[in-house]
């Protein structure tokens, strides 16, 4: 494992999302050099990247990348015209954008702990996703708008976590401005290290939680 792997994972986490990047790195490590490489990944990067650590641990226990099907979620969003997404997890966002009708506008709040190339992030969605500044996200509020955040660890005993962007956009006033505040769990495996980069949130912050597979 080279010393540059941390930077490589940081780039992947910035533009793919921590869970998406973690599954990708773990699968590639296993395919390349087997279980030792997964353990090596965990040893080198796990402390800095708790989501990766959790995914590696789950992989070692036999878990594999979750199948993401957003059809059910898209059906539950019938009648919605705008979705504001907080945070980035491309495995899930790709599936959602694919499942939503073309008439539904999707925006991504431009806020990240890392430094993604937003232009490249957006180029992957073929014009379906727009960027929204943090200061402007309320301009998308309305009766037919949903505020969606990716959350981590909804199924575990350690609590629920989200990106810090969620804390910046959520609040009692925002709750009344959107039809739903939706949390979408993207990490169905337990976190064993306190999740750096994430903040603890309450399930009651959301009007609905979409659990991971």
């Amino acid at each position: 494992m080279s010393g540059g792997t941390d930077q490589a994972f940081a780039l992947a986490a910035a533009e793919l999302g921590m869970a998406s990047a973690a599954w990708l790195f773990t699968a590639e490590a296993d395919a390349s050099e087997g279980p030792e490489a997964v353990q090596g990944l965990r040893d080198v990067l796990g402390r800095n990247w708790p989501v990766l650590d959790a995914v590696c641990a789950a992989w070692q226990s036999g878990a594999r990348p979750p199948r993401v099907d957003a059809t059910g979620l898209a059906q539950r969003l019938t009648g919605i015209t705008r979705v504001v997404v907080v945070g980035l997890e491309v495995r899930w966002l790709d599936a959602l954008v694919k499942a939503l009708p073309a008439s539904v506008r999707v925006a991504l709040v431009r806020h990240s702990e890392f430094s993604p190339d937003w232009e490249r992030v957006l180029a992957n969605f073929g014009g379906r996703v727009e960027l929204l500044e943090l200061s402007e996200f309320q301009s998308w509020a309305g009766q037919r708008s949903v505020l969606l955040s990716f959350v981590y660890g909804a199924g575990g005993a350690e609590g629920l976590f989200a990106l810090s962007a969620w804390v910046r956009v959520s609040g009692p006033d925002v709750r009344t401005q959107f039809r739903q505040l939706l949390g979408w769990d993207v990490l169905s495996v337990p976190l064993s290290i306190y999740p750096r980069w994430l903040v603890a949130v309450s399930a009651t912050d959301f009007t609905q939680l979409e659990l991971a597979e």
Partner: peptide, 8 residues
């Protein structure tokens, strides 16, 4: 990773 960054 590069493939994923340019997947779409």
């Amino acid at each position: 990773t590069l493939g994923a960054l340019y997947r779409g």
